[in-house]
Amino acid sequence: MIVIPYVDKPHPLTGVTNAKFGIWLFLASEVMLFGALFSTLIILRTGSANWPLGSTELNVPLATINTIALITSSVTIVLAWASLKMQQIGRFRVYMALTLLLSAVFLVIKYFEYTHKFEHGHFPSTSTFFAIYFTMTGLHGIHIIGGMIVNAYLMGPGSAMWKKNPEQFTGRVECAGLYWHFVDLVWIFLFPSFYLL
């Protein structure tokens, strides 16, 4: 019989469970992924003679709403996790649903931003500004969708684990939350880099 230790209890040396250690490593790798893309943005921008001003090309008010939506969703996912810590699975579901709702708001607004750009003939092939804009926000959008799938699973079928092993389930929600904060953080860098500066 295979018994893998530290699935729900933290390791005495590192102070974290396997899953939490794993998710931090994964996020380190994600930092390198987005770090490379931000470096690309800097190199393209400094190498360009006429880089457009983001606020004139893109819709700042919509992006501001999106920023607020994502930051709020980071708060609600922490509240979802805190509800589990207080043994309230019902409140957990409410906060998780709120998180999903806010991420859906983000994606819908992003959809309108994208279609608006396409209607005006702005594509990745238009200029390197739009190329890097679509690439980075698109990749970020894929990360949002991935996070939503995980969050929806944890709210729905995944929550069956709550009865069997509440500690492990709380750990899973915490890992999903860490990932979600990272996705939020990336947007907090994307917003000024593209829309404001």
């Binding site: 490593l25 790798s29 490379a36 092939s125 190329a131």
Partner: peptide, 25 residues
């Protein structure tokens, strides 16, 4: 592997964009 591969993944995505969507990275 964990920290060095992601920049190549980023570069691969950029080259895919160049090839598939006609961007000019």
């Amino acid at each position: 592997l964990l920290l060095a591969f992601p920049p190549l993944e980023a570069a691969g995505v950029l080259q895919l964009m160049d090839r598939v969507f006609g961007s000019s990275f």
